[in-house]
Every structure is written in structure tokens, then in C-alpha cells.
């Protein structure tokens, strides 16, 4: 693989994704409205019910809106990762995925380009959300906005890779509704996005156990710590490890010899 070719390919895939995103303004709006509804309505309503004590990375008592903002940033990345996988299933059904897969570059690299394209859009959405949240008095230290970037990229890669892996398993667009019910919602709710883990442990040790095995919890914590100028080493390790695992599974899934595409009914419309 030549470096120039690799760069051109990455640029092409990212540019295409950006153009599609611009053309689908509704997608941008809905991606923003979802976390904003949680911030403006849910957080306001639950502020008095769900007290948050001083826990790292916070050094003082914080408003509930501040607590859930990193979780809502994670929500943007999670939904974007799943949206990307949905678009891949759609592209595969519609055929445009074939254009990418017959390009003269290794398949793992093509999938990585697709992943990075999706992450770049998600990062943009996350920053727009944080900018709006600033007016809602969610104001982390300035340095946090800079440290947020690598945390967003890492977490976005992990959730995007998860989406890629799922897209390689899903045969038809209709099956994607199942992903919403069985992946997105459980991942989001069984995490530290909405409530601290110690509170979950008080309520249900079993749920606490589930949350600690949920990679999304670590993505949220990586973002939370970065946003407040701190570094969560364990979260970073888990996120990197899961990214590698999901990406490897996606590459296998899209391998014509070994993956799901080679199995029964996985082929093209026969003629």
C-alpha cells in the first residue's frame, strides 16, 4: 500500500461522508436534538432527585447537568457509531459499499477510513453540543475542551468499530431495529452516563457489575476525566482494547473468505 494512495483514499472517504452529512441536515439536527433534550428536560427534572456527591474528576459539588454532559457526549458518539453502521448496511444493500470494497487497498484499511470518516463527523457534533451546553452553564475548564479531542477520537473509534462489527453481521436493513433495542439502549442506560456507579451499586449490585463490564462506561469516563483536565488510564486501556477487538471482528466480518459475507444467504442477489 502506497502512502499517497492511502492518504487520497482517506481524504476521499472523509470528504464523501462530510458531503453526505451536509446534504442530510436533518441527520445533524436530530443528532444534536437528542442529547439537548436530555440536557434541557431530563437533567432539569432529575436535578433535585439525583444528587451527585464529590467524586473524581470533580473537586466540588456539581449540578446534575454537568454530571450528565459527558454521558450525553458519549451518547452522540454511540448513536453516530450506530448511524454509521446503519448507513453501511444501507450502502451494502444499495450497492455503493461495493465501490469502496473493490478499491485496490487492503480491506482493513478501507474499513478504517470509513470508521475515521464517521468519527470526524461525531467529533464535530460533540463540540457543537458542548458549545450549546456552555450557555446552559455546563462550563468545564478551558483546557478540558482541548483534552476532550483525543478522548472523543478514541471513544468514537471504539463505538464506530462496534457499529462496523454489527454492520458486518446484519443482513438486512430491517434487522437494524433490533440493534436499537439490544445494543444502543442497554449500553447507554447500563453505564455511568446518567448516574455515578456508586449510586448504581447502592441500588443493584448486579446492575453495577453489568455497568463495569460495559465498554461504554469507560468511554464516558474517559470523556468525563478529559473534560475536567484529568486522565483516566484504566478507561483509556479498556477503550483501546475494545477498539482493537471490535475492529478485528469487523475486518473478519467483511472478509470474503472467513466472514459473515461468505455464509449462506450472505451473497448478492443471484442472477
Amino acid at each position: 500500500m502506497k502512502l499517497n494512495h492511502a492518504i487520497l483514499c482517506l481524504r476521499g472517504v472523509v470528504f464523501r461522508e462530510a458531503l453526505r452529512f451536509i446534504n442530510q441536515r436533518g441527520r445533524f439536527l436530530s443528532a444534536l436534538v437528542r442529547p439537548l433534550v436530555w440536557l434541557f428536560i431530563f437533567a432539569a427534572g432529575f436535578r433535585s432527585v439525583l444528587g451527585v456527591s464529590i467524586i473524581p474528576p470533580y473537586e466540588t459539588y456539581i449540578r446534575y447537568e454537568e454530571y450528565i454532559s459527558p454521558g450525553l457526549v458519549g451518547m452522540i458518539l454511540l448513536f453516530n457509531g450506530m448511524q454509521s453502521s446503519l448507513s453501511m448496511v444501507y450502502d451494502r444493500e444499495m450497492g455503493s459499499m461495493r465501490t469502496l470494497l473493490v478499491s485496490p487497498l487492503p480491506r482493513w484499511y478501507l474499513l478504517l477510513c470509513k470508521l475515521l470518516a464517521g468519527v470526524s463527523i461525531a467529533v464535530l457534533q460533540a463540540y457543537v453540543f458542548m458549545a450549546i451546553a456552555w450557555f446552559w452553564e455546563v462550563r468545564p475548564p478551558t483546557v478540558g475542551y482541548f483534552l476532550l479531542l483525543p478522548a472523543l477520537i478514541l471513544s468514537g473509534l471504539m463505538l464506530g468499530a462496534l457499529g462496523l462489527m454489527l454492520s458486518s453481521m446484519i443482513r438486512q436493513l430491517e434487522n437494524f431495529a433490533g440493534v436499537m433495542n439490544f445494543v444502543i439502549f442497554p449500553m447507554f442506560f447500563a453505564s455511568s452516563a446518567l448516574y455515578p456507579l456508586w449510586r448504581i451499586n447502592d441500588a443493584s449490585p448486579l446492575l453495577f457489575w453489568v455497568c463495569t463490564f460495559n465498554p461504554f462506561t469507560y468511554a464516558v469516563e474517559l470523556i468525563r476525566f478529559a473534560l475536567y483536565g484529568q486522565f483516566n488510564f484504566v478507561a483509556m486501556l479498556v477503550v483501546i482494547g475494545c477498539t482493537g477487538l471490535f475492529l478485528a471482528a469487523a475486518v473478519v466480518g467483511y472478509d470474503p473468505l472467513r466472514g459473515f459475507m461468505s455464509r449462506k444467504d450472505g451473497g448478492p442477489a443471484k442472477s
Partner: peptide, 27 residues
């Protein structure tokens, strides 16, 4: 391919530029 694989949301030029990038043709 049998089924159209061009991107309906993009223009003719954008589709061709995308293909050129995938093939590694310098700009």
C-alpha cells in the same frame, strides 16, 4: 455493477472525484 452504485446525494463531479481518490489518482 448490476445495481447502480453511484451516490445519489452527490453530484457527477463529486462521485468521480471520490472514485479517483479511491483509486489513488493524484488530484
Amino acid at each position: 455493477f448490476q445495481r447502480s452504485t453511484v451516490d445519489m446525494d452527490l453530484s457527477v463531479l463529486q462521485n468521480l472525484r471520490y472514485a479517483a481518490d479511491l483509486q489513488g489518482i493524484p488530484r
